[in-house]
Design a protein around this nucleic acid. Structure first.
Lengths: 342, 342
DNA sequence: CATTAGCAGTCGGCCGGCCTGAGTGCTAAA
DNA sequence: TTTAGCACTCAGGCCGGCCGACTGCTAATG
């Protein structure tokens, strides 16, 4: 029993993986004999397949069926077998076109990036943009919604924007609102959240009882916002989940995708290192993902921050193509949001 | 052949609809005899069922099966048969809890509203918030991303916030950026988009070539943003699509849900009138929706604007419960975003 | 001694027939 | 007009047989 994986086994394994990715059906010795560039008979290939099965690379759905690659085989394929192409001309062009405009609305750009990536790879794409608000206040604004409702708008030094709804226990006049807005903007601008103190603010400005309540509420909302990390997630191509698995798995995954913690757990590892990550089947920590594969990487957002993006698809996806696409998208997105060289 | 729908037929039709909504399987004369409060035998009910079928309210999947309600039956049920309950204690409470907090991040509130609504109704919920930016500028800010990339932040008088990415053909210094930011903020504040003119701006402020380019780009981006309507859509419970239909329909609907125009077409009618709308099966204009039903209404956003929200579910949904839920959610959301009485 | 042809064996998928049970429509009596 | 009774229909589950794809084993081969 061969325990080393020699050249011929490599070729055969490669053929099995490629064939299965293409057709989705178990591949038999005959098919391998045709497609692999090894000049041996089907019988010999059967022996090799049998050996590869014993080594854990292949699996038979049932006795008289062909072979299906295991997670281990995909892992080996990704690490040692595949050649990774740059995205083809059309695909690269589609991505570049997305980033070509001179002026661009930010949310829309991220959303379209996720949709495009999903379409190009026939998977579900996730673009994750964490914006740390732990930063200095740059501008504060208050907008009146009704007598007792006020919207607070915060802009941070790095350009994050937050909107909080404030509810007051008594009505506040437009005049008071304006004075409080001007006051908080003047006093809080330049401060980081640890240096904001509602009590201190109330001592420095004099307002009526309604005004004071507003000052306090505003200060608290600012501190709350600055202490949080705004995490925007853009998901595209959820429909692709449905035909990559049985309805039950699809439903489980769809449900999970709506959960913040799930996306976080999926993408947070990537935020620490700028490196492509492939997690195949059971390599995924998240149970809902263990029937799928994940391909992701990170991209620079500026201010030393990293965002991350990736796709979720069937374990039998075309890894080479998908990886190329994910990397190219990350490159372009990073270059658009942040370009150290200008 | 009876062509009028008399009292007994009403009771029987009601029983069929309720039974089918509950079990999902065709209901036969026996089941109706048990559940409807009519004291007649199954044989009589068979005659009535047959009549109701001829009138277009019922359908037989095959000869020896029970009856299934048609879209017409659901329509009649919604219009004349059902009694609409207020949401039950627990459900009402769950909704109220969502709106209880004194301070609330706005995007998060909408997102959670859609998720909660979908969970309570076992459907897919959509919350649509159109924010018209056709308004006056309240504040302009410029944030430097890199030498040639700048983020423009606009706040409008109504509290809308837009972020646009500007790409410049030559580097701009931090100093110039600050001067341009202060200048545009001062000059543009209070203006509506029709009164903003890049050429005029350039005449009123003197900047180097890079600065001038920035002024022009900023002015154009402001005009562009103010001319657009920012439409935020929050979708919750997409997973519920999967088990309410076959995989193919589910996939089609999921795909459609990601399209902006689809959501728009679905919800824009509601923006003109404050009224509950129910569209059953083929009553829907959108082809992708003709196997589903839609229940939606609008809610006030303040400043005379209306938003809308609704759910998409199987035609055999529990209309009474769903309608109650949608209305209660709209009521609460409207009261939170905008309360004329304070 | 690796390779190969040949062959028997396995097993999923498909087709047709059979049976069951739920539910119908019709008819004749109340 | 209502009802009991009865013959009829048909989807769905079950069984058995056939087909075809593919395997593992064995014996022959260069």
């Amino acid at each position: 029993m061969a325990t080393e994986i020699d050249g011929r086994k490599k070729k055969i394994l490669l053929a099995v993986v490629q064939n299965f990715v293409l057709t989705g059906r178990p591949v038999g010795s005959g098919a391998v004999a045709q497609s692999a560039d090894v000049a041996v008979s089907a019988a010999t290939i059967r022996n090799e397949l049998s050996a590869l099965e014993e080594m854990g690379f292949l699996r038979q759905p049932h006795t008289s069926a062909g072979r299906v690659p295991t997670d281990v085989a995909y892992r080996y394929y990704v690490d040692s077998l595949m050649e990774q192409p740059r995205p083809s001309g059309r695909d690269a062009e589609a991505i570049e076109r997305l980033f070509a405009a001179q002026t661009r609305e930010i949310e829309g750009l991220f959303q379209e990036a996720s949709v495009l990536l999903s379409r190009l790879t026939h998977t579900t794409a996730i673009v994750f943009a964490p914006f740390s608000s732990a930063d200095a206040v740059r501008h504060i604004d208050l907008v009146r919604l009704s007598d007792q409702r006020v919207m607070l708008i915060i802009i941070t030094a790095r350009g994050q924007v937050g909107r909080q709804l404030l509810r007051l226990s008594r009505p506040v006049t437009g005049d008071t609102l304006q004075r409080v807005a001007a006051f908080t903007d003047r006093v809080l601008t330049g401060l980081t959240s640890d240096r904001i103190d509602a009590g201190d603010l109330l001592r420095r400005g004099k307002f009526g009882s309604a005004g004071s309540e507003l000052v306090r509420a505003a200060a608290e909302a600012v501190v709350e916002y600055m202490g949080s990390i705004e995490e925007r997630v853009f998901i595209g191509g959820t429909a692709n989940i449905v035909d990559s698995a049985t309805p039950e798995w699809a439903q489980t995954l769809l449900e999970a995708m709506e959960k913040q913690y799930f996306i976080l757990d999926l993408l947070k590892d990537l935020l620490h290192e700028r490196r492509l990550t492939v997690r195949i089947g059971e390599e995924n920590r998240l149970r809902e993902l263990q029937r799928y594969s994940f391909v992701g990487t990170s991209y620079p957002l500026g201010h030393g921050l990293l965002g991350s993006l990736g796709v979720v698809g069937p374990t039998s996806m075309d890894y080479a193509r998908t990886i190329g696409m994910v990397e190219y998208m990350a490159e372009n997105l990073g270059r658009t949001m942040f370009n150290p060289k200008g």
